[in-house]
Nucleic acid binder design. Structure first.
Length: 377
RNA sequence: GGGCAGUUGAUCCGAGCGGCAAAGGAGGCGGACUGUAAAUCCGCUGGCGUAAGCCUUCGGGGGUUCGAGUCCCUCACUGCCCA
């Protein structure tokens, strides 16, 4: 199979199982990517990532450009060598940072967007920088991930006029410029469909971008404040407009439920900080719920986080011990919970894939929701 | 034996210096977290009541005052210093 192509192995209604061929090996989809913003998935080593079944890892253009610098990383052999991860990687463009830095902590906005790009101040030292589509591609090519993302504008999802007048035209123009600037043949550049929660905007965006023939398409601007129903309804109208022969990436999503429902709507790639972030904040994710490990009820609980789980954490450590680590603010607590949470997400997506390959995804989905309902009642 | 300093909400530390149910920590309990400025953030932490509010609290006892954790007397205990 030639590089950067997508092989569809099985489908069941909208759900798909496939393989995306990258320079660092085949990527079995659907897949869930842990987020390693600053060239590290916080609290775990690459070896631990591999142990819990990670295949694709995210990193971030904005953060690595500011520190330690994309040119330094390029000199040291690129992102894979730098962080010692030899599997597939994806770099986000910084579009989301432009969005999230806008209104942080009520401070004066750290950025200004215009037609040509975005001017922003570093959150680290306040120095001014400028991202244009061309600059972002230069950085991402220096980093050398297998998948790079175009610079987009991730705006509030319910401001129709703003999205239509400003954010979408910019996102589309920038996508074209990114594509024109991109030269690395071992790196796939994905376009990003925007349009908030509005079906007509999503459709316009999907049509515009698919005409540009990217090797893959992302759906951005979701899970940023809109309701779950709005997110799913948006997926319902968007994925059918994307080419079946290209991978579809739902950016920044999400929870176990989101994986099941996203796949059911034709998504192939997910990423989310949730499992790693909540781990550092003391929460264990289970396939059918979650546990707050600070809770007193776990103080003398000798059971593992999840009796059915085979992750390194559940094989060796009790809830009582993990609660102790979390309460005592010991760093190992974050590591153990991160491993467990990633394992939960990665085995879920793996099981989803197997179900699609066996043409029993719909039954899997029903059982998944039944289990959550039983737990909830 | 003498001198000085101290004893705060029944977990601990600690502000307080005439209007206080009493600052702030720690600890405890609970919640949140979705393309990571997050090992972060937000509640609650004397009792009763939905609430206005009422009741009980600042080592013990007594006093001054409209009113005392705050001022006076006395007792107890703790720490440092002098014998």
């Amino acid at each position: 199979m030639s590089l950067l192509t997508f092989e569809l192995l099985a489908t069941e209604d909208q759900a798909r199982a496939g393989v995306f061929h990258t320079a660092h090996g085949p990527l079995a989809t659907p897949i869930y990517a842990p987020v390693g913003t600053q060239a590290t998935v916080k609290a775990v080593t690459p070896q631990q990532l591999r142990e819990v079944g990670a295949s694709l890892v995210l990193a971030n253009t904005y953060h690595l450009y500011l520190r330690p610098g994309d040119e330094l990383i390029a000199r040291l052999g690129g992102l894979h060598a730098f962080m010692a991860w030899d599997g597939p990687m994806l770099t986000d463009s910084g579009g989301f940072q432009v969005f999230s830095l806008a209104g942080h902590r009520g401070e004066e906005s750290l950025r200004r967007i215009d037609e040509d790009g975005v001017t922003f101040r570093s959150h680290i030292d306040g120095r001014q920088h400028r991202f244009t589509p061309e600059k972002v591609i230069e950085i991402e090519q220096n980093l050398g991930a297998d998948i790079a993302m175009v610079l987009d504008e991730c705006a509030v999802p319910d401001d129709y006029d703003y999205l239509k007048r400003y954010a979408l035209p910019r996102t589309h123009a920038w996508a074209e410029r990114c594509l024109a600037a991109h030269t690395r043949e071992d790196q796939a550049l994905f376009g990003i469909v925007q349009g908030g929660v509005f079906a007509d905007l999503r459709e316009a965006s999907a049509r515009h971008l698919t005409a540009l023939d990217f090797p893959g398409y992302a759906i951005g601007g979701l899970s940023v404040g809109e309701s779950k129903d709005e997110m799913l309804a948006t997926l319902d109208v968007t994925t059918p407009l994307l080419p079946a022969g290209k991978p579809r990436y739902l950016m920044g999503v999400g929870t176990p439920e989101d994986l099941v429902e996203g796949v059911a709507r034709g998504i192939d790639i997910f990423d989310c900080v949730l499992p790693t972030r909540v781990a550092r904040n003391g929460q264990a994710l289970l396939r059918d719920g979650k546990l707050n490990m600070r809770n007193a009820r776990f103080a003398d609980d000798p059971a593992p986080l999840d009796a059915a789980c085979t992750c390194p954490t559940c094989r060796h450590f009790s809830r009582a011990y993990i609660r102790h680590l979390v309460v005592a603010k010991e760093i190992l607590g974050a590591t153990l919970l991160t491993q467990h949470n990633l394992h939960t997400m990665l085995t879920l997506i793996h099981d989803i894939r197997d179900a699609i390959l066996d043409q029993r995804f719909e039954a899997f989905r029903t059982a998944f929701w039944d289990a959550r309902e039983r737990k909830g009642s």
